[in-house]
Amino acid sequence: MQQPVPRPTAISKPFWDALRERRIVVPRCDRCGWWIFYPRRHCPRCCSERLTWTAISGQATLCSYTIARIPTLAGFAQPAPQNLAIVTLAEGFNMNSALAGVEPEAMRIGMELRPVFNVIDHTGATRLLFTAADSCDGDNSRH
């Protein structure tokens, strides 16, 4: 069974499109500077609708994680065991993701992470995963 493919909306399309180019962009409020994730049309802090898609490095730390011993969907059965992660980007906001190339025993809350652009189908649909900042592989590998 296939993994679910991201389904961009008119609001989120720039985020998913940028991942295909190995870039990360997130809307930021022009008025108050707030980072808006997941993407919306308004700033949930000051309600301004003047937002700008802004590039970030993807540098992050691990906020929390778990190992799903029963896959949450058949498509996530491999590689086993499935992990799920919540990461805190350097800019201060959280994102759901998963870790690539990190063994469960090596996962530590607070560990430094860097982005992995994970291409999941022949059209180039890409997910944003993370790996240990000091790891030298992981990029574009199959997950």
Binding site: A68, L73, L84, I86, N96, I109, L129
Partner: peptide
């Protein structure tokens, strides 16, 4: 849209991540 592609589905894993934290 930002849960499903990463397998963040159902309840178990959400509660588990709270417990881990």
């Amino acid at each position: 849209e930002f849960d499903i592609p990463y397998g963040h589905l159902g309840q178990n894993t959400g509660y588990a991540m709270i417990a881990q934290q």
